[in-house]
């Protein structure tokens, strides 16, 4: 490589070696290294693990979780928490299934799902900001409400038979080399890209960090705190709706017991992705990698065959603990 850059006094290798990323990217880099390491270990240990299609399946099987984690990243960055997203996913699958069963146009059905989910998120945001209710409590109420509404629509599982939905679910996108992916993955990745842009390059996004860092100072700095605090819950609600639609595509059904506890997976992914649970620090890319780490653990267990699936939970628990401790050590050093 150095031959290419020979005329320059410092070789590329020197520059690579001398490059040290800003400390704020460190958690994401650590998570990424962990992911690469785990995937590599899997590749060495199991035949066929290193196949790119395994990686693509990872995205495919977790597309809805990626979208949820994106929404959760906004909320956690702003210093909050959203426990309602799992229930909102269930509600979304149910609304989609029920409206389609009633003969609605699939597009209208999608709009209805997203509108209801966003509205729920906005309402929780308003409660949290204007009535100063703890985010934990407000979204816990949202969790019960959304799950309850799901039962209200139907206790039984409702299959989705709509042609547009089925086509979206099964249609694959051919990639070079004989690999394939689905539209759900494209939507999930697009969500990540848009979210990353919003957080990094818009006033709204920057204010999210400021509010999460210190809400009182953000107010004194003259920032639009109310707008952002309500906005992040609206975004999380929207993402839960979108995640619900992807989950409906994945399962082709609406069911009140879908996605029980999925909010906790989303929170785990965000934290493993290096976002500080107290807010103000983290990146949406980290959350994507966090989801992939969780997915890899599951893939490990399915490849092994001999391990109980509960090892997934144990591994996630250990990882979570390690990351929180690492974060604590890092922030302690800085203060």
């Amino acid at each position: 490589m150095s031959t290419l850059t020979a005329p320059v006094t410092t070789s590329l290798w020197d520059r690579v070696r001398g490059f040290s990323p800003p400390a704020r990217f460190l958690p994401v880099i650590v998570t990424f290294a962990l992911f690469v390491g785990m995937f590599g270990a899997g590749g060495v240990r199991y035949d066929g693990f290193a196949d790119p299609q395994v990686f693509l399946s990872l995205l495919l099987d977790n597309s809805f979780l990626i979208v949820l984690a994106v929404g959760m990243t906004f909320v956690i960055l702003a210093g909050g928490i959203d426990l309602s997203v799992g229930s909102v996913v269930a509600l979304s699958t149910m609304i989609a299934a029920k409206t389609l069963q009633m003969g609605w146009s699939p597009y209208l059905s999608i709009v209805a799902v997203l509108a209801v989910a966003t509205l729920l998120g906005t309402l929780m945001g308003l409660l949290i900001h204007y009535f100063e209710i703890q985010p934990f409590v407000a979204t816990l109420a949202g969790l019960f409400l959304a799950r309850g509404l799901t039962y209200l629509i139907s206790v039984e599982s409702i299959p989705i038979t709509d042609a547009t939905f089925s086509e979206l679910a099964f249609k694959t996108i051919e990639l070079p080399g004989g690999y394939y992916t689905t539209w759900a993955v494209v939507i999930a990745i697009a969500t990540v890209v848009v979210a990353a842009y919003v957080l990094a390059r818009t006033r709204f996004g920057r204010t999210v960090y400021a509010v999460g860092g210190n809400e009182a100072s953000a107010l004194l700095m003259g920032l639009r705190v109310a707008w952002v605090k309500v906005g992040v819950y609206a975004i999380s609600g929207f993402c839960a709706g979108l995640g619900g639609l992807l989950f409906a595509l994945y399962t082709l059904s609406g069911y009140s017991l879908h996605a029980v506890g999925m909010e906790l997976d989303a929170i785990a992914a965000v934290v493993i992705g290096g976002t500080l649970l107290t807010g103000g620090r983290g990146y949406v890319v980290g959350s994507l990698i966090g989801v992939l780490v969780l997915g890899t653990i599951q893939t490990f267990i399915s490849f092994d065959g001999g391990l109980s699936s509960w090892w997934t939970r144990i591994a996630i628990g250990v990882l979570l603990l390690v990351f929180v401790v690492v974060q604590r050590l890092m922030t302690r050093r800085q203060t």
């Binding site: 400021a210 920032l223 103000g280």
Partner: peptide
């Protein structure tokens, strides 16, 4: 009372 995780420029012009 600025945001330690953002850059100097971002802090100066936040909002």
């Amino acid at each position: 009372n600025l945001v330690p995780n953002l850059t100097v420029a971002e802090n100066m012009l936040l909002g």
